[in-house]
Design a protein around this nucleic acid. Sequence first.
DNA 1: TTTATTTTTTAGGCTTATCTAAAAAATATT
DNA 2: AATATTTTTTAGATAAGCCTAAAAAATAAA
Lengths: 221, 221
Amino acid sequence: MLSYTEENYLKIIFILSYPTAKEISTNDIAKNLNINAASVSDMLKKLKQKNLIDYAKYQGVSLTQEGRKIAVNIIRKHRLWETFLVNTLNFSWDEVHDIAEQLEHIQSNLLIEKLYQFLGFPKFDPHGEPIPDENGTFPETKDWICLNSCKKQQKIEVKSITDDSSDLLQHLDKISVNIGVKIEVIEKNSYDKSIDVLINDIKQCTLSKEISEKIYGVLLD
Amino acid sequence: MLSYTEENYLKIIFILSYPTAKEISTNDIAKNLNINAASVSDMLKKLKQKNLIDYAKYQGVSLTQEGRKIAVNIIRKHRLWETFLVNTLNFSWDEVHDIAEQLEHIQSNLLIEKLYQFLGFPKFDPHGEPIPDENGTFPETKDWICLNSCKKQQKIEVKSITDDSSDLLQHLDKISVNIGVKIEVIEKNSYDKSIDVLINDIKQCTLSKEISEKIYGVLLD
DNA sequence: TTTATTTTTTAGGCTTATCTAAAAAATATT
DNA sequence: AATATTTTTTAGATAAGCCTAAAAAATAAA
Ligand SMILES: [Mn+2]
Ligand SMILES: [Mn+2]
Ligand SMILES: [Mn+2]
Ligand SMILES: [Mn+2]
């Protein structure tokens, strides 16, 4: 049985390396968990000891088979709980991430099985993030592209927001961006990498790089 | 913000003193939490420091206003989650206690409000235990009596089982005792304090003291 | 009312997860 | 290639929550 802390380390290593499975630096983990790099070094030693990560001093870190399995299960639980909170309890999509951060650590396979069934075997969470199935397999998303990478005049249907922070999601609500809307690139501004877009063929606005790189969708036309 | 551990101490102090609010001993807490009495002494000092308990060395412990409020909220969450697990996710009543022990520590007032509403403002959990409302008020149960205290030929309708352990609940399933059944006392055996009973006017069996003292109900006729 | 037993507290340790400061290694710059 | 900067690790501390062993207080028994 792992501690919440250990689970959070495995989860963040997975997320930072997804989908490439590349090696992650001590500093990246430290920044993302808001802890000191020295503490991360300590924990990496411990996780290596438990055979959950591949790690050699100064060489970065990656998950072992076993570590990946645990990380994916935490992510599965997180996203199923977010789906429950929005679909069943009528939370809005910007309110659920912090609660799911807690719920993802509840230990019970039966609970997750039953929740999964109750929710109707969902494949994506309220932010469009893919929910791995009971074998750890993620639903297909390879035709999704980043809005940020679209050329002028290309148009996408939004499939996912890759950041659940309430700040961002509330901002997206304000400009009427949610899962399913169509966004067309009107202009690309090279100076600050922002883009001018048309949302659902009606509303025009400018999206900063920070925002556009978190929106993914499928190309239309 | 309290730790899970602190919350568990407050909860067990409440439960051990309910409904009398009498003083609780260090040893009682230690036995119930499966920890050493020395550890309990340490924690009591800390909880007193935080004004959550009234405590003087060697004199037993009781909850302050503030401590009681927190304890009742944990119990409310525990029982609402058990209700959710049984009513919504189709768990059986013997499977839910350990999961609720984890879920009761999830921090979010909004979550509990929404869960409460989703479940239809339940007053009792799957074991018949009263669920305090948002103000900490417990539903009325003062006409409930313990099966153990019934005289020969008295008959009750079961309202609650005051122990959620799966061992006991599975045993009760086996002898067809659940919430709502009628139990009549046929004979009281003074030697071991066991009683012979008739369940739903059909099935006769003997209940040990350990079992009969955990069954509560309302007197019939 | 002494003495014995039980309960509770204190003293001193251990583990986990964190920190700061300093050392070591890797990387970037001149 | 030598030096400066950044990244990572080690060393040494701390707080929470637990432990065992021993001391102190309360309670029960003689
Ligand atoms: Mn999330
Ligand atoms: Mn999400
Ligand atoms: Mn319970
Ligand atoms: Mn219960």
